[in-house]
Structures are given as C-alpha cells and as structure tokens.
Amino acid sequence: MIDNLRPDLALIARMVKPDARVLDVGCGEGGLMAALRDTKKVDARGLEIDAGNVAAAVGRGLSVVQGDADTDLTYYPDASFDYAILSQTLQTTRRPDLVVDELLRIGRQAFVSFPNFAHWRGRLSLLWGGRMPVTRLLPDTWYDTLNIHHVTVDDFRALVKERGWTIDGQWFLKGDKETTHANANLFAEHAVFLLRR
C-alpha cells in the first residue's frame, strides 16, 4: 500500500513510527493518511484546502478538515501530534517560513517535502531558453502554477539555519529513486526534510 504512494510520500510513510499521531497538512484525498492508518495504525488527521478532495477523504473514513495551511494551523494546540507533514505544499503557501514554524509547534517533528527548483534541468531551461522552466516536475506555466514560492534545497537549508531548527533527516529523490546528498541542490528533483525545533 505504501509502495503505491507518490515517492516522497512513500518515503515519509516508511519513516513514520507505528501508532504515531500525525497531522497531514495538504493531505489531498488522504492517500498517505489511509496508508498510515492501515499499515501502521497511525492516528492521522488531515487539513486540505480543496472541497472535492476533503469529500473524497472523508468518504474513505478519514478525519479531514477543509482549511488553509496559511491561516488554520493556529487552531491546533502545541505538541498535539508526533509528526506534522507538509508534502509538496510548502511552495504554495503565502508564508512558507511561518507555516513550517507552525508545523514545528504542532508536531514534535515535521516532515517537509518540496520540488527542488535548482535541479539542473530547470537551471538549463532558464539559462539557455531564458524561460521559466516547464518540466515533468514543474509542469505548469508561470501564470497558472500554484507554486508561488519556488524554493531550492540550499534555500531551505539556509532558512533552517537562520531559524535555528534542527534537521533530523534529509532525503533526496530523482524520479522515484533516492539519490545521494552530494550536490543535492543540483541533482535532486525532490527533497524531504525531517525537522524539529
């Protein structure tokens, strides 16, 4: 069941400890939540902005609240979850730094995954074509993308350092395969960080 998930979600799902309490922010139709519930007996809750996705998730018996990561995380109490998860949603938030800060307040640890905008394919596209990259990972044109805060692996590391957060783990993906840490900013398509305060 975990193997059927999107690669970054599968990676996160393997790391989550059984019986944990998890808040999945931007949970979509709840695929990760359902996998965690069914394979690891995780108590999973979700926050999702799209009504159709929420209806689908609730329809499969998951506890999902329709809401906005930028405004609704404030209503969750401190340290009420073992993990807060933000997968491929960071770059769509209005204030990614504040959202991660909230994740680390609500969860003892936070998984954050995002597409790496500094991947060489994107760099080449910008360098040679002079156009905003439209790639397999970033398939939308600049005017209709939901990604309003493009971020690179090094950008994120700099933010983590600046805020004094601790990195408990970091993983990088090329396609659906894990790749090395070396030159991740150039070669990783996706990054997954496990953080705590």
Binding site: A51, V54, V65, Q66, Y75, Y76, P77
Partner: peptide
C-alpha cells in the same frame, strides 16, 4: 481541533 477531537469538515 483545540480539544484534540477527531473532526472532519467540508
């Protein structure tokens, strides 16, 4: 959410 209840909303 504040009380930690299992809640869904749409």
């Amino acid at each position: 959410n504040a009380s930690g209840a299992q809640a869904s909303f749409v």
